[in-house]
């Protein structure tokens, strides 16, 4: 089954690069934040798949189960998701303020208005 495992990692990298491309190439700030989220999710997949064991149950103790998945990545990613939405909210709030001050959220326009940014 290692063949499928390799494809797992390939798709993680594809998702990560899709997010990175969105952040670099798109000029709209909201689109950039979506790209950042896609990037972030690919890292989450990576962690969770490291914690996965074939045939392992979820890490809730039960009678007659001997093999559990690794709980540590779950804890890390669980908190990372909630912190991720908090940082997304700050980014979106900044976007709103930029729109109110400059009248645009397109990177090109902002650059023309204020060459120092």
């Amino acid at each position: 089954m290692s063949g499928l495992g390799i494809w797992n990692y390939v798709i993680f990298i594809f998702l990560m690069m899709a997010g990175l491309y969105m952040v670099i190439s798109s000029t709209n700030l909201v689109k950039k934040i979506i790209g950042l989220n896609v990037f972030q999710t690919s890292v989450f997949f990576m962690y969770i798949s490291f914690g996965y064991i074939d045939g392992g149950a979820g890490p809730v103790l039960a009678e007659g189960v001997t093999l559990y998945s690794n709980p540590l990545p779950h804890v890390l990613i669980l908190t990372a998701i909630v912190v991720g939405v908090a940082t997304t909210a700050v980014g979106l709030a900044l976007t709103i303020r930029i729109k109110e001050s400059f009248g645009s959220i397109e990177e090109d326009d902002l650059h023309k208005m204020d060459p120092s940014i």
């Binding site: 979820g58 809730v60 669980l78 908190t79 998701i81 909630v82």
Partner: peptide, 12 residues
């Protein structure tokens, strides 16, 4: 404590 869940999920 007993099943999937906790403060983060419940809050959301």
């Amino acid at each position: 404590d007993f099943g999937p869940g906790g403060g983060f999920q419940a809050g959301v």
